[in-house]
Amino acid sequence: MKKLLKIFSVLLLICSSNTFSFAAEKVDYLKTDWSFKGLFGKFDRASLQRGYQVYTEVCASCHSMKYLSYRNLAEKGGPEFPEDQAKAIAASFEVMDGPNADGEMFARPGKLSDKFVMPYDNVKAAQAANGGAYPPDMSVLVKARGGGVDYIYSLLQGYEEAPSGMILDDGVHYNKYMYGNKIRMAAPLSDGLVEYGDGTTATVEQMSKDVTTFLMWAAEPHLEARHQMGFKAIIYLIILTILVYFSMKKIWSRVESEV
C-alpha cells in the first residue's frame, strides 16, 4: 500500500510538473477571490447579472459573443435571469432574418433562440471601425488567454500613463498587463460608467470583476454542473477504491505474497 501511495504521488508530481513548465512568462496579475474556483466553486448570480450589464452596455459595442444565445441567460448555472426578462433582453435586439416568402430579408425583434447579435457584420468591418485591430470574440476569451480570468481582470484595470521614453502611436494605449504593453483598446471602464440596478457602486474594480465573472461563465457555461458532478464522482471513486482495497486484501490473503 505504501508503494502504491508513492506511485500515486509520483503520478501527481509528474502531472503538475508538466503543467507548470508551460507557465514560462511570469506576470503578477491582480488577485481577487473568484467564487467559481475550488471544489465547490459556483458563480455569484448577482455578479453574473451585473457582468452581463457591463458586457452589453460597454463591451458589446465592439466585441461579439457569437457562441451564446439569449436563452443561455435564463439557463441554470448562468446569470439565471427570469425567462420574461431574458425574453425582454432578446427582444430589445434587432435580428436580421429571412428570406421571407417574397424573398426579402427582414428585421425582427430577437427571440430566446437567437444567438447574441454581433456588433459588426464581419471581421473586416470590425477592423475598419477599430483602427485595424479586430476586437476578439468574447465567447471563450478567458480560456484563450494564458492568465485566464486573472489576466482579463488585471488588463481591465491595467491602463496607466506610458513610462517616459515609450512612444505610442496614435490610437495605441499603454497597459501594464498586455503582452508587449501596447493595446489598441482604449480604457473601456471608468467609475460610474454603468448604473447597477441592485445599487452596487460601479467602480472600475467592481465592474472588472463582474464582467470577468460573466466572461468566465460565457466560456464555461456548465462550470457549476462540472464541479458538482466532479465532487460526487470523486467521492464515489474514493469509496469504491477503499472497498476494492479491502476485497483485494482478503483475496490476496490466500497466497503468501503482499499486495
Binding site: L4, F8, L11, L12, C15, T19, L39, R226, H227, M229, G230, F231, A233, I234, L237, I238, L240, T241, V244, Y245, M248
Partner: peptide
C-alpha cells in the same frame, strides 16, 4: 481494478477541476 480506480481519481481531478 484497484490500481485503475486510483488512476481514475487522478483522471477525474483533471476532467472536473482543471
Amino acid at each position: 481494478g484497484f490500481a485503475l480506480l486510483m488512476f481514475m481519481i487522478v483522471f477525474a481531478f483533471f476532467v472536473f477541476y482543471s
